[in-house]
Write a protein that binds this DNA or RNA. Structure first.
Length: 122
RNA sequence: UGGGAAGAGGGGAGAAUCGCUCGCAGCGCAAGUUGCGGGAGGAAAGUCCGAACACCAUAGAGCGCGAUGCCGCGUAACCGGGAAGUGGGCCGCAAGGUCGGACUUGGCGGAUACACGCGGGCAGCGACGACGCGAGUUGUCCUGACGGAAAGUGCCACAGAGAAGAGACAGCCGGGAGCGGCAGCAAUGUCACUCCAGGUGAUGGUGAAAAGGUGCGGUAAGAGCGCACCGCGCGAAGCGCAAGCGACGCGGCAGGGAAAACCCCAUCGGGUGCAAGGCCAAAUAGGAGACCGGGAAAUGGCUCGUUUCGCGUUCGUGAAAGCGAACAGGUCUCGGGUAUCGGCCGCUGAGACAAAUGAUUCUCGCCCCUUCAGCAGUGCAGGGGAACAGAAUUCGGCUUACACCUCUUCCCCGACC
Protein backbone atom coordinates (compact mmCIF):
# COMPACT_ATOMS: atom_id res chain seq x y z
CA UNK A 1 0.00 0.00 0.00
CA UNK A 2 1.64 3.21 -1.07
CA UNK A 3 1.59 6.16 1.26
CA UNK A 4 -0.17 8.45 -1.22
CA UNK A 5 -3.57 6.92 -0.49
CA UNK A 6 -5.37 8.29 2.56
CA UNK A 7 -6.19 5.39 4.85
CA UNK A 8 -9.66 6.22 6.15
CA UNK A 9 -11.49 2.98 5.82
CA UNK A 10 -13.13 2.52 9.16
CA UNK A 11 -16.80 1.82 9.58
CA UNK A 12 -17.75 3.20 12.95
CA UNK A 13 -21.08 4.30 14.27
CA UNK A 14 -20.99 7.64 12.47
CA UNK A 15 -20.81 5.85 9.13
CA UNK A 16 -24.08 3.98 9.60
CA UNK A 17 -27.66 4.90 8.94
CA UNK A 18 -29.53 4.01 12.08
CA UNK A 19 -32.70 6.05 12.22
CA UNK A 20 -35.87 4.80 10.64
CA UNK A 21 -36.62 8.23 9.17
CA UNK A 22 -33.25 8.25 7.42
CA UNK A 23 -34.05 4.92 5.83
CA UNK A 24 -37.44 6.20 4.73
CA UNK A 25 -35.97 9.42 3.34
CA UNK A 26 -33.31 7.65 1.29
CA UNK A 27 -35.65 5.05 -0.09
CA UNK A 28 -38.34 7.63 -0.88
CA UNK A 29 -36.28 10.50 -2.27
CA UNK A 30 -33.07 8.83 -3.44
CA UNK A 31 -32.02 7.16 -6.65
CA UNK A 32 -32.23 3.42 -7.17
CA UNK A 33 -30.29 0.80 -9.11
CA UNK A 34 -30.25 -3.00 -9.28
CA UNK A 35 -27.31 -5.26 -10.07
CA UNK A 36 -26.89 -8.98 -9.44
CA UNK A 37 -27.49 -9.85 -5.84
CA UNK A 38 -28.13 -6.36 -4.52
CA UNK A 39 -30.32 -3.28 -4.81
CA UNK A 40 -28.97 0.18 -4.00
CA UNK A 41 -30.75 3.36 -2.93
CA UNK A 42 -28.72 6.50 -2.34
CA UNK A 43 -28.81 10.22 -1.83
CA UNK A 44 -25.84 12.55 -2.14
CA UNK A 45 -24.37 14.33 0.87
CA UNK A 46 -22.43 17.55 0.88
CA UNK A 47 -18.66 17.29 0.56
CA UNK A 48 -16.75 16.91 3.81
CA UNK A 49 -19.34 14.71 5.51
CA UNK A 50 -18.63 10.99 5.74
CA UNK A 51 -20.52 8.51 3.61
CA UNK A 52 -23.05 6.42 5.49
CA UNK A 53 -24.29 2.89 4.90
CA UNK A 54 -27.49 1.08 5.74
CA UNK A 55 -28.03 -2.60 5.09
CA UNK A 56 -31.38 -4.34 4.65
CA UNK A 57 -31.63 -8.13 4.55
CA UNK A 58 -35.10 -9.61 4.67
CA UNK A 59 -36.00 -12.99 6.05
CA UNK A 60 -36.52 -14.24 2.49
CA UNK A 61 -32.74 -14.38 2.12
CA UNK A 62 -32.27 -17.18 4.63
CA UNK A 63 -31.88 -17.98 8.28
CA UNK A 64 -30.04 -15.83 10.79
CA UNK A 65 -26.60 -17.16 9.90
CA UNK A 66 -27.08 -16.48 6.18
CA UNK A 67 -28.48 -13.03 6.85
CA UNK A 68 -25.60 -12.15 9.17
CA UNK A 69 -23.07 -13.20 6.57
CA UNK A 70 -24.84 -11.20 3.86
CA UNK A 71 -24.73 -8.08 6.01
CA UNK A 72 -21.06 -8.56 6.77
CA UNK A 73 -20.16 -9.02 3.13
CA UNK A 74 -22.09 -5.91 2.12
CA UNK A 75 -20.51 -3.87 4.89
CA UNK A 76 -17.02 -5.09 4.04
CA UNK A 77 -17.48 -4.27 0.34
CA UNK A 78 -18.65 -0.77 1.22
CA UNK A 79 -15.84 -0.30 3.74
CA UNK A 80 -13.08 -1.14 1.26
CA UNK A 81 -14.39 1.20 -1.47
CA UNK A 82 -16.02 4.09 0.36
CA UNK A 83 -13.06 6.39 -0.30
CA UNK A 84 -13.44 5.93 -4.05
CA UNK A 85 -16.81 7.70 -4.27
CA UNK A 86 -16.96 10.99 -6.18
CA UNK A 87 -18.85 12.52 -3.29
CA UNK A 88 -20.22 11.32 0.01
CA UNK A 89 -23.43 9.29 -0.10
CA UNK A 90 -26.15 7.94 2.08
CA UNK A 91 -26.26 4.45 0.64
CA UNK A 92 -28.72 1.66 1.43
CA UNK A 93 -27.88 -1.79 0.14
CA UNK A 94 -30.71 -4.32 -0.01
CA UNK A 95 -29.70 -7.95 -0.33
CA UNK A 96 -31.52 -10.24 -2.73
CA UNK A 97 -31.82 -13.98 -2.08
CA UNK A 98 -29.10 -14.87 -4.58
CA UNK A 99 -26.49 -13.38 -2.22
CA UNK A 100 -26.66 -16.54 -0.15
CA UNK A 101 -24.54 -18.41 -2.73
CA UNK A 102 -21.94 -15.63 -3.28
CA UNK A 103 -18.55 -15.17 -1.64
CA UNK A 104 -16.90 -11.84 -0.87
CA UNK A 105 -15.39 -11.45 -4.36
CA UNK A 106 -18.79 -11.93 -6.00
CA UNK A 107 -20.49 -9.35 -3.79
CA UNK A 108 -17.65 -6.88 -4.25
CA UNK A 109 -17.82 -7.35 -8.03
CA UNK A 110 -21.57 -6.67 -8.10
CA UNK A 111 -21.17 -3.55 -5.98
CA UNK A 112 -18.34 -2.16 -8.13
CA UNK A 113 -20.25 -2.84 -11.35
CA UNK A 114 -23.28 -1.08 -9.96
CA UNK A 115 -21.34 1.93 -8.78
CA UNK A 116 -19.50 2.18 -12.10
CA UNK A 117 -22.76 1.99 -14.12
CA UNK A 118 -24.34 4.78 -12.12
CA UNK A 119 -21.21 6.93 -12.29
CA UNK A 120 -20.68 7.19 -8.57
CA UNK A 121 -17.05 6.11 -8.66
CA UNK A 122 -14.13 8.42 -9.31
C1' U B 1 -11.67 -56.26 8.44
C1' G B 2 -16.46 -54.33 6.53
C1' G B 3 -21.60 -52.79 7.62
C1' G B 4 -25.57 -51.39 11.08
C1' A B 5 -27.95 -49.74 15.89
C1' A B 6 -27.72 -47.29 20.69
C1' G B 7 -25.12 -44.20 24.18
C1' A B 8 -21.12 -40.74 25.59
C1' G B 9 -17.43 -37.03 24.15
C1' G B 10 -15.54 -33.54 20.52
C1' G B 11 -17.46 -29.91 16.93
C1' G B 12 -10.06 -27.72 13.72
C1' A B 13 -5.19 -24.92 15.21
C1' G B 14 -1.77 -20.84 14.28
C1' A B 15 -0.07 -16.25 11.84
C1' A B 16 -0.31 -11.54 8.94
C1' U B 17 -3.06 -7.21 7.02
C1' C B 18 -7.56 -4.38 7.19
C1' G B 19 -12.00 -3.66 10.37
C1' C B 20 -16.29 -3.90 14.46
C1' U B 21 -17.84 -3.78 19.69
C1' C B 22 -17.49 -3.33 25.23
C1' G B 23 -14.48 -2.16 29.66
C1' C B 24 -10.21 0.23 31.86
C1' A B 25 -6.00 3.53 31.50
C1' G B 26 -3.16 7.62 28.96
C1' C B 27 -3.44 12.06 25.72
C1' G B 28 -6.98 15.77 23.88
C1' C B 29 -11.50 21.61 25.12
C1' A B 30 -14.02 18.26 22.05
C1' A B 31 -14.67 15.10 17.93
C1' G B 32 -11.42 11.47 18.63
C1' U B 33 -6.90 8.69 19.21
C1' U B 34 -3.15 5.20 21.50
C1' G B 35 -2.31 0.95 24.67
C1' C B 36 -4.04 -3.32 27.41
C1' G B 37 -7.91 -6.81 28.23
C1' G B 38 -12.93 -9.35 27.08
C1' G B 39 -16.03 -10.73 22.67
C1' A B 40 -21.38 -17.00 20.24
C1' G B 41 -23.49 -22.66 20.90
C1' G B 42 -24.20 -27.81 21.99
C1' A B 43 -27.92 -26.97 20.56
C1' A B 44 -27.18 -19.81 21.18
C1' A B 45 -32.77 -22.74 17.56
C1' G B 46 -38.15 -24.21 18.57
C1' U B 47 -40.49 -21.28 22.66
C1' C B 48 -43.02 -26.79 24.78
C1' C B 49 -42.67 -26.90 30.51
C1' G B 50 -40.92 -24.46 34.95
C1' A B 51 -37.75 -21.10 38.30
C1' A B 52 -35.60 -16.31 39.41
C1' C B 53 -36.72 -11.21 38.78
C1' A B 54 -40.37 -7.09 37.80
C1' C B 55 -45.08 -4.84 37.86
C1' C B 56 -50.47 -5.16 38.52
C1' A B 57 -54.31 -7.44 41.51
C1' U B 58 -55.63 -9.89 46.07
C1' A B 59 -61.21 -10.50 53.02
C1' G B 60 -63.81 -15.06 51.96
C1' A B 61 -67.02 -18.90 49.73
C1' G B 62 -69.13 -21.38 45.56
C1' C B 63 -69.32 -22.42 40.35
C1' G B 64 -66.43 -22.53 36.14
C1' C B 65 -61.61 -23.01 33.54
C1' G B 66 -56.64 -25.09 33.00
C1' A B 67 -52.71 -28.53 34.26
C1' U B 68 -51.16 -33.04 36.45
C1' G B 69 -52.32 -38.42 37.65
C1' C B 70 -48.48 -46.16 40.27
C1' C B 71 -44.56 -45.80 44.55
C1' G B 72 -39.81 -44.39 46.72
C1' C B 73 -35.08 -41.92 46.56
C1' G B 74 -32.05 -38.33 44.24
C1' U B 75 -30.54 -33.84 41.02
C1' A B 76 -30.19 -28.49 39.54
C1' A B 77 -31.60 -23.40 38.43
C1' C B 78 -32.79 -20.03 42.89
C1' C B 79 -32.19 -18.14 48.04
C1' G B 80 -29.02 -17.73 52.75
C1' G B 81 -24.15 -18.21 55.62
C1' G B 82 -19.25 -19.12 54.70
C1' A B 83 -13.87 -21.14 52.59
C1' A B 84 -9.79 -21.36 48.87
C1' G B 85 -7.87 -19.97 43.99
C1' U B 86 -7.91 -16.83 39.37
C1' G B 87 -9.02 -12.29 37.24
C1' G B 88 -11.38 -7.15 38.34
C1' G B 89 -12.91 -2.24 40.97
C1' C B 90 -11.85 1.19 45.10
C1' C B 91 -8.40 2.94 49.12
C1' G B 92 -3.11 2.95 50.19
C1' C B 93 3.95 5.15 48.81
C1' A B 94 4.00 0.02 50.05
C1' A B 95 2.81 -4.25 52.90
C1' G B 96 -2.03 -4.80 52.72
C1' G B 97 -7.26 -3.75 53.41
C1' U B 98 -12.00 -3.67 51.33
C1' C B 99 -16.13 -4.29 47.72
C1' G B 100 -19.84 -6.35 44.81
C1' G B 101 -20.48 -9.69 41.51
C1' A B 102 -18.11 -13.41 37.56
C1' C B 103 -15.59 -18.14 36.87
C1' U B 104 -13.36 -22.70 39.01
C1' U B 105 -12.95 -26.23 43.21
C1' G B 106 -14.80 -28.56 47.60
C1' G B 107 -18.69 -28.34 51.15
C1' C B 108 -23.33 -26.62 54.58
C1' G B 109 -28.56 -25.12 55.21
C1' G B 110 -33.51 -23.91 52.88
C1' A B 111 -36.85 -24.77 48.66
C1' U B 112 -39.72 -27.64 45.48
C1' A B 113 -44.53 -27.54 40.72
C1' C B 114 -42.96 -29.48 36.14
C1' A B 115 -38.92 -32.04 34.18
C1' C B 116 -34.93 -35.47 34.34
C1' G B 117 -32.04 -39.71 36.49
C1' C B 118 -31.93 -44.31 39.39
C1' G B 119 -34.56 -48.19 41.74
C1' G B 120 -39.17 -50.69 42.59
C1' G B 121 -44.51 -52.13 41.64
C1' C B 122 -48.51 -53.25 38.29
C1' A B 123 -50.52 -54.19 33.41
C1' G B 124 -50.15 -56.35 28.19
C1' C B 125 -54.59 -60.86 22.10
C1' G B 126 -46.47 -58.21 22.63
C1' A B 127 -41.35 -61.13 21.43
C1' C B 128 -38.03 -65.09 22.89
C1' G B 129 -36.77 -69.04 26.35
C1' A B 130 -37.96 -72.65 30.40
C1' C B 131 -41.65 -75.80 33.02
C1' G B 132 -46.50 -78.39 32.55
C1' C B 133 -50.55 -83.82 28.96
C1' G B 134 -53.31 -79.23 29.01
C1' A B 135 -55.73 -74.74 30.77
C1' G B 136 -51.63 -72.07 32.25
C1' U B 137 -47.23 -70.55 35.14
C1' U B 138 -42.51 -68.32 35.12
C1' G B 139 -37.63 -65.62 33.52
C1' U B 140 -35.54 -61.86 30.28
C1' C B 141 -36.61 -58.01 26.92
C1' C B 142 -40.03 -54.51 24.93
C1' U B 143 -44.17 -51.30 25.57
C1' G B 144 -47.47 -48.29 28.87
C1' A B 145 -50.63 -39.77 29.17
C1' C B 146 -50.02 -46.11 34.62
C1' G B 147 -56.55 -42.55 39.23
C1' G B 148 -61.85 -44.34 38.05
C1' A B 149 -65.48 -48.34 32.92
C1' A B 150 -68.57 -51.43 40.07
C1' A B 151 -71.23 -43.02 39.72
C1' G B 152 -73.79 -41.65 35.23
C1' U B 153 -74.74 -40.49 29.72
C1' G B 154 -73.26 -42.04 25.08
C1' C B 155 -70.09 -45.13 21.39
C1' C B 156 -68.09 -50.02 19.54
C1' A B 157 -67.68 -49.92 12.08
C1' C B 158 -67.59 -54.55 9.02
C1' A B 159 -68.61 -59.59 9.60
C1' G B 160 -71.91 -62.69 12.22
C1' A B 161 -77.91 -66.32 14.10
C1' G B 162 -76.41 -63.46 18.24
C1' A B 163 -72.26 -57.72 20.85
C1' A B 164 -73.80 -57.00 27.10
C1' G B 165 -77.04 -59.27 32.15
C1' A B 166 -77.25 -61.61 24.27
C1' G B 167 -78.14 -65.48 20.83
C1' A B 168 -80.85 -71.28 17.71
C1' C B 169 -78.24 -70.21 11.19
C1' A B 170 -76.27 -75.00 10.56
C1' G B 171 -75.83 -78.88 14.16
C1' C B 172 -76.99 -82.28 18.49
C1' C B 173 -81.01 -84.56 21.68
C1' G B 174 -85.34 -87.06 23.35
C1' G B 175 -91.03 -86.70 22.77
C1' G B 176 -95.66 -86.50 19.58
C1' A B 177 -97.94 -87.06 14.58
C1' G B 178 -97.46 -88.80 9.46
C1' C B 179 -95.33 -91.82 5.60
C1' G B 180 -91.87 -95.45 3.89
C1' G B 181 -87.84 -99.44 3.94
C1' C B 182 -86.01 -103.87 6.61
C1' A B 183 -86.77 -108.04 10.39
C1' G B 184 -90.94 -110.70 12.46
C1' C B 185 -97.12 -114.87 12.00
C1' A B 186 -98.02 -110.83 15.33
C1' A B 187 -97.15 -107.53 19.41
C1' U B 188 -93.04 -104.89 18.32
C1' G B 189 -87.99 -103.46 17.11
C1' U B 190 -84.82 -100.73 13.95
C1' C B 191 -83.36 -97.19 9.98
C1' A B 192 -84.37 -92.83 7.05
C1' C B 193 -87.53 -88.59 5.69
C1' U B 194 -91.41 -84.62 6.63
C1' C B 195 -94.17 -81.72 10.17
C1' C B 196 -95.20 -79.92 15.42
C1' A B 197 -94.04 -78.24 20.33
C1' G B 198 -89.57 -78.29 23.23
C1' G B 199 -84.37 -79.01 25.33
C1' U B 200 -79.17 -77.46 24.46
C1' G B 201 -74.88 -73.69 24.62
C1' A B 202 -70.68 -79.45 23.37
C1' U B 203 -69.45 -78.74 17.51
C1' G B 204 -69.11 -75.37 12.80
C1' G B 205 -68.72 -70.60 10.82
C1' U B 206 -67.98 -64.64 12.03
C1' G B 207 -65.20 -61.32 14.82
C1' A B 208 -60.45 -57.44 18.34
C1' A B 209 -63.97 -59.68 21.73
C1' A B 210 -69.10 -65.10 21.76
C1' A B 211 -70.36 -64.38 28.71
C1' G B 212 -64.37 -68.42 32.60
C1' G B 213 -60.57 -72.52 30.86
C1' U B 214 -58.31 -77.82 30.84
C1' G B 215 -59.81 -82.69 32.12
C1' C B 216 -62.94 -86.43 34.50
C1' G B 217 -67.78 -87.58 35.92
C1' G B 218 -72.67 -86.82 34.59
C1' U B 219 -76.76 -86.47 30.97
C1' A B 220 -81.64 -87.98 26.13
C1' A B 221 -78.12 -84.38 24.44
C1' G B 222 -75.82 -80.83 27.22
C1' A B 223 -74.58 -77.15 30.82
C1' G B 224 -70.16 -75.02 37.30
C1' C B 225 -74.91 -79.58 37.07
C1' G B 226 -70.79 -82.08 40.36
C1' C B 227 -65.39 -82.80 41.32
C1' A B 228 -59.83 -81.84 40.61
C1' C B 229 -56.55 -78.32 38.71
C1' C B 230 -55.74 -73.34 36.33
C1' G B 231 -57.75 -68.47 36.21
C1' C B 232 -61.13 -64.80 38.72
C1' G B 233 -63.55 -62.26 42.95
C1' C B 234 -63.95 -61.38 48.42
C1' G B 235 -61.63 -61.70 53.22
C1' A B 236 -56.91 -62.22 55.46
C1' A B 237 -52.03 -64.07 59.07
C1' G B 238 -47.65 -62.04 57.54
C1' C B 239 -43.93 -58.99 54.46
C1' G B 240 -42.72 -54.00 52.53
C1' C B 241 -41.39 -46.69 54.06
C1' A B 242 -44.82 -47.18 49.94
C1' A B 243 -46.96 -48.68 45.23
C1' G B 244 -48.06 -53.52 46.28
C1' C B 245 -47.20 -58.86 47.32
C1' G B 246 -49.59 -62.52 49.91
C1' A B 247 -49.58 -68.33 53.28
C1' C B 248 -54.55 -69.64 54.33
C1' G B 249 -59.92 -69.51 54.07
C1' C B 250 -64.51 -68.57 51.48
C1' G B 251 -67.43 -68.00 46.80
C1' G B 252 -69.41 -71.75 41.22
C1' C B 253 -67.99 -67.09 38.79
C1' A B 254 -69.87 -61.78 39.76
C1' G B 255 -67.60 -60.80 34.06
C1' G B 256 -65.69 -57.01 27.14
C1' G B 257 -63.13 -52.41 24.94
C1' A B 258 -62.31 -47.29 24.94
C1' A B 259 -61.60 -42.24 30.00
C1' A B 260 -56.47 -39.49 23.69
C1' A B 261 -65.84 -39.46 24.07
C1' C B 262 -68.39 -36.50 27.72
C1' C B 263 -67.59 -37.19 32.66
C1' C B 264 -66.31 -38.42 38.05
C1' C B 265 -62.29 -38.35 41.89
C1' A B 266 -57.72 -36.34 44.00
C1' U B 267 -53.88 -32.61 43.96
C1' C B 268 -52.14 -27.99 42.21
C1' G B 269 -52.91 -23.29 39.79
C1' G B 270 -54.11 -14.96 40.30
C1' G B 271 -52.47 -12.23 35.69
C1' U B 272 -48.82 -10.17 32.40
C1' G B 273 -44.03 -10.60 30.83
C1' C B 274 -37.32 -7.20 30.22
C1' A B 275 -41.60 -4.35 24.51
C1' A B 276 -41.58 -6.56 32.59
C1' G B 277 -40.55 -2.24 35.12
C1' G B 278 -38.03 2.35 36.89
C1' C B 279 -35.75 7.21 36.07
C1' C B 280 -34.82 11.88 32.98
C1' A B 281 -37.03 16.84 30.12
C1' A B 282 -42.13 19.18 30.96
C1' A B 283 -46.76 18.38 34.01
C1' U B 284 -51.47 15.27 39.43
C1' A B 285 -49.63 20.44 32.49
C1' G B 286 -53.15 21.02 28.70
C1' G B 287 -57.10 19.09 24.85
C1' A B 288 -61.24 16.03 22.40
C1' G B 289 -65.17 12.45 22.91
C1' A B 290 -68.55 8.98 25.37
C1' C B 291 -71.09 7.35 29.64
C1' C B 292 -72.83 7.85 34.81
C1' G B 293 -75.29 11.03 37.80
C1' G B 294 -79.43 4.95 41.91
C1' G B 295 -75.22 4.19 40.72
C1' A B 296 -69.81 3.27 39.74
C1' A B 297 -65.37 0.55 40.71
C1' A B 298 -62.51 -3.67 42.75
C1' U B 299 -62.51 -8.85 43.85
C1' G B 300 -59.09 -9.87 36.01
C1' G B 301 -64.20 -15.58 33.71
C1' C B 302 -69.19 -15.60 36.39
C1' U B 303 -72.38 -15.42 40.86
C1' C B 304 -73.10 -14.46 45.95
C1' G B 305 -71.01 -11.78 49.50
C1' U B 306 -67.68 -8.07 50.94
C1' U B 307 -64.96 -3.57 50.48
C1' U B 308 -64.23 1.31 48.49
C1' C B 309 -65.98 5.74 46.09
C1' G B 310 -70.04 8.81 45.25
C1' C B 311 -75.12 10.57 45.80
C1' G B 312 -72.44 17.79 45.34
C1' U B 313 -73.15 23.24 44.07
C1' U B 314 -75.91 27.11 41.62
C1' C B 315 -80.28 28.78 39.03
C1' G B 316 -85.64 28.14 37.68
C1' U B 317 -90.31 26.15 39.54
C1' G B 318 -92.71 24.38 43.92
C1' A B 319 -95.31 24.68 50.65
C1' A B 320 -92.33 20.27 50.41
C1' A B 321 -90.93 15.84 48.04
C1' G B 322 -89.58 16.24 43.32
C1' C B 323 -88.66 17.93 38.24
C1' G B 324 -85.64 20.75 34.56
C1' A B 325 -81.01 23.29 33.15
C1' A B 326 -75.91 24.58 33.87
C1' C B 327 -71.41 23.70 36.39
C1' A B 328 -68.41 20.85 39.32
C1' G B 329 -67.48 15.47 40.08
C1' G B 330 -66.57 10.23 38.77
C1' U B 331 -65.32 6.37 35.10
C1' C B 332 -63.65 5.07 30.34
C1' U B 333 -61.56 6.01 25.50
C1' C B 334 -58.55 8.75 21.93
C1' G B 335 -54.98 12.01 19.57
C1' G B 336 -50.78 15.78 18.94
C1' G B 337 -46.05 17.54 20.75
C1' U B 338 -40.58 17.62 22.97
C1' A B 339 -33.52 15.69 21.94
C1' U B 340 -38.13 10.69 19.19
C1' C B 341 -37.70 3.44 15.97
C1' G B 342 -35.90 9.88 22.63
C1' G B 343 -32.01 8.87 26.28
C1' C B 344 -30.31 6.30 30.81
C1' C B 345 -30.98 2.15 34.24
C1' G B 346 -32.69 -2.90 34.24
C1' C B 347 -27.96 -5.36 31.26
C1' U B 348 -23.89 -9.06 32.96
C1' G B 349 -15.13 -11.09 31.83
C1' A B 350 -20.28 -11.24 25.05
C1' G B 351 -23.96 -7.43 26.17
C1' A B 352 -26.21 -5.13 21.06
C1' C B 353 -30.71 -1.95 20.12
C1' A B 354 -30.94 -0.77 11.68
C1' A B 355 -28.54 -5.03 16.01
C1' A B 356 -20.60 -6.07 17.26
C1' U B 357 -18.12 -11.01 17.71
C1' G B 358 -15.92 -9.96 10.85
C1' A B 359 -13.17 -9.92 5.67
C1' U B 360 -8.97 -11.59 2.80
C1' U B 361 -4.58 -14.47 2.43
C1' C B 362 -0.94 -18.11 4.04
C1' U B 363 0.84 -22.48 6.91
C1' C B 364 -0.30 -26.97 9.54
C1' G B 365 -3.89 -30.77 10.79
C1' C B 366 -8.64 -33.86 9.31
C1' C B 367 -11.89 -36.39 5.42
C1' C B 368 -12.86 -37.92 0.15
C1' C B 369 -11.34 -38.75 -5.13
C1' U B 370 -7.51 -39.44 -8.98
C1' U B 371 -2.39 -40.45 -10.97
C1' C B 372 2.35 -42.58 -9.68
C1' A B 373 5.49 -45.74 -6.29
C1' G B 374 5.16 -49.94 -2.95
C1' C B 375 3.58 -57.03 -1.25
C1' A B 376 1.52 -53.92 2.46
C1' G B 377 1.04 -50.21 6.50
C1' U B 378 1.86 -45.91 3.55
C1' G B 379 4.32 -41.87 0.78
C1' C B 380 4.57 -37.81 -3.20
C1' A B 381 1.61 -34.67 -6.40
C1' G B 382 -3.12 -32.59 -8.07
C1' G B 383 -8.31 -31.56 -7.14
C1' G B 384 -12.41 -31.17 -3.83
C1' G B 385 -14.84 -30.96 1.12
C1' A B 386 -15.63 -29.40 6.52
C1' A B 387 -22.32 -30.11 9.03
C1' C B 388 -26.53 -27.97 12.00
C1' A B 389 -26.49 -23.29 13.05
C1' G B 390 -25.75 -16.63 15.57
C1' A B 391 -26.48 -14.60 22.13
C1' A B 392 -30.73 -10.12 23.11
C1' U B 393 -32.75 -10.28 31.32
C1' U B 394 -30.80 -14.85 33.61
C1' C B 395 -31.10 -20.11 34.82
C1' G B 396 -32.85 -25.63 34.82
C1' G B 397 -35.43 -29.24 31.79
C1' C B 398 -37.71 -30.96 27.13
C1' U B 399 -37.95 -31.21 21.76
C1' U B 400 -35.86 -30.70 17.04
C1' A B 401 -31.24 -30.14 13.51
C1' C B 402 -26.17 -31.92 12.93
C1' A B 403 -20.77 -33.21 7.95
C1' C B 404 -16.86 -35.58 10.16
C1' C B 405 -13.80 -37.87 14.15
C1' U B 406 -12.93 -40.75 18.86
C1' C B 407 -14.54 -44.24 22.70
C1' U B 408 -17.97 -48.08 24.86
C1' U B 409 -21.77 -51.91 24.24
C1' C B 410 -24.65 -55.02 21.04
C1' C B 411 -26.00 -57.32 16.20
C1' C B 412 -24.91 -59.13 11.05
C1' C B 413 -21.70 -60.82 6.81
C1' G B 414 -16.92 -62.61 5.02
C1' A B 415 -11.76 -64.40 5.88
C1' C B 416 -7.99 -66.62 9.15
C1' C B 417 -6.42 -69.32 13.66
Amino acid sequence: MDAALPIQRGLGRRCRIKLGRDFQRVRRDGERAVKGCLIANWTRRTAGQPSRLGVVVSKRVGNAVVRNRAKRLLRESFRQHQDQFKQPLDLILVARPSIAQKDFAGVECDLLLLLRQTGLLK
